[in-house]
Nucleic acid binder design. Structure first.
Lengths: 340, 340
DNA sequence: TTGTATGCGTTATCAT
DNA sequence: ATGATAACGCATACAA
């Protein structure tokens, strides 16, 4: 059965009593081979337990069936669920997933470019908003690539993400429908497009309800920044009845700060987040937030990349998935009751 | 600069005006080559931006420098931090990390054996406690493999984990030192060795303090099972003052159940967990638990595997890292106050 | 429909 | 210290 050295195409050919060319054809172009021979070959494959040597194949083809997935931080809790989608889709099409994380280190990014080259990877999935390798030099002829979450700096690379505007809009709309009029937005001043779009959704919602622009504070997306923003608001004595946060971490910070000051959520204040990270459902109160369909994003990103590899058709440049509002317990009517 | 087709060893040889054999030597056995030639070669490499074609190399060597990491569920939040350790260590030694998840599906496991073969992976990191491929057939000659968290069923494979007994011991000892005497253990009836060991630590702690064996309930490690175990205890009207849980999920379930019944933690009951999953620090109250040094586990596992690959020395069979007790706010003295 | 033969880029063996 | 060359396993152009 499993002999010391893996069976090669020659072993199969010998047993099937055909040439190696025929074996190769039987595998890759079955219709070009007589039914009877095909049968013999398949039997021989079964007997030997033959598996194509991917290295030899890639060498011959000048391209491997591996996809390199580069993320700034593979330890990010959001990353794994995306990875699931990526991996499933890749595997289903006979591709392997090679992972690497850059730790936001440009040097490391360059290393990965070499790596990519060395492994003749067929394509690239990019998690960072920016190209991990020096833009200028490489941008010209980049391998088939797909971004996840947001456009890759310098453009030209299609990406799969979530409709942040719509997601944010759903959150404000909920708040407004509960009767809130003074709604603060705790944003993220980083340049990530996703964050800017969430703010856009917030503003659009306000505008649609005829509410003049409200309080916007920019943090940096961390728990701490949520807490800080809250303190600022208290200092300015300019309190909203609801806090709409650019992500769940920020919302967590706000919730923690509110609790520390002795307030109850959602009785005294309402809070919403964005992303639906795992702990969102375990906070007290559990957080009303906007869910990123992570596995689906991974799946779509990989599917798009694979499509680019087979067709040479110009890919869609942007695929936005529909985010869902996850209603939990951090939102209620404002203290004075539902205004209208 | 970055030409349409990557530079090969021949390009380098031509520019350096040496043979390809010399280039190869200059790279892999620099001491066997004259200093002056070495210099020329290095310059040529710099000029061309040459990177070894990993496919060709692997084909020639009969083995690639890729490590296959197989986990039952790469979406598990615990997985990513381990992955960081694995990836860093691998990369530092010039290895790539190929990932796959079996979804606990035996069929999928078999598929990965083929995959492993096809990619000529140099080694295997196993997350499951059991071999993903049919044991009997393959066990005989398995590739160099290392388990993570716990021994791989059927043994023979070294693994890196945490000292569960010691970790559990630290938790009971804390509880005991706070004055608790009636300490329930909510376990996990699954066959995972780690879980059994945690119970062992619990019993050892009790024994050391001269406390007769207490209440042990077996769940299945889920949030729900924690809640259920709690209900059973209430039904039996046989309440402890502290709940020591086999993992954080279970502890979460217990905490939720306690809260639902209107009790305060840690005033009415103390609760401990194990693992230190991300949400442990965000629960209210934050959970006192035992931390798995995840990144370190990954790092050690990969280091061990790599060592096995270079030395052919028989590896240590078990590496147990020291777990740390993370003291947060879910433990206090029992209601009656610290006894004796 | 099938077989023969070439080359993909390396490393290692054997000469020199 | 260096060079020529074979072989790794495969896919395909070309011949039959």
């Amino acid at each position: 059965m499993s002999n010391s050295t893996p069976a090669t195409i020659e072993d199969v050919a010998r047993i099937a009593e055909v040439s190696i060319a025929t074996v190769s054809r039987a595998i890759h172009m079955p219709e070009k081979v007589a039914k009877s021979t095909r049968l013999k070959v398949n039997q021989a494959i079964a007997i030997t337990g033959y598996t194509t040597n991917a290295m030899a194949r890639s060498l011959r083809l000048g391209r491997s069936n591996m996809i390199l997935v580069v993320a700034p931080d593979i330890g990010d809790p959001n990353f794994s669920s995306i990875l699931v989608g990526l991996e499933n889709e890749a595997r289903a099409h006979g591709y392997g997933v090679l992972i690497g994380h850059t730790q936001n280190d440009a040097q490391r990014g360059l290393e990965y470019l070499k790596f990519f080259n060395s492994y003749q990877a067929a394509g690239l999935i990019l998690f960072t908003g920016i190209l991990p390798f020096g833009h200028q030099a490489v941008t010209a002829r980049l391998p088939p690539s797909v971004g996840v979450f947001e456009p890759v700096f310098n453009g030209g690379i299609p990406y799969v993400g979530v409709d942040d505007v719509e997601g944010a809009r759903k959150a404000v709309d909920l708040l407004i429908s509960e009767g809130h009029r003074r709604i603060a937005f705790i944003g993220d001043s980083n340049t990530r497009l996703a964050y800017r779009r969430r703010r856009l959704g917030y503003e659009a919602g306000l505008a649609a309800a005829g509410i003049p622009s409200n309080l916007v504070l920019e943090g940096d997306g961390t728990v701490e920044s949520g807490r800080l923003a809250l303190e600022q608001l208290f200092m300015r004595d300019d309190l909203p009845t609801a806090f709409m946060c650019v992500n769940d971490q920020t919302a967590l910070g706000v919730a923690l700060g509110l609790k520390a000051r002795g307030y109850e959520i959602p009785d005294d204040f309402s809070v919403t987040g964005f992303d639906d990270i795992p702990q969102a459902s375990f906070m007290t109160p559990s957080l009303t937030t906007v869910r990123q369909p992570r596995t689906a994003i991974g799946k779509h990103a990989m599917a798009l990349l694979l499509a680019m590899l087979s067709d040479r058709a110009a890919p869609e440049t942007e695929i936005l998935l529909r985010p869902d509002l996850v209603v939990r317990n951090s939102v209620g009517p404002p203290p004075g009751g539902k205004k209208r």
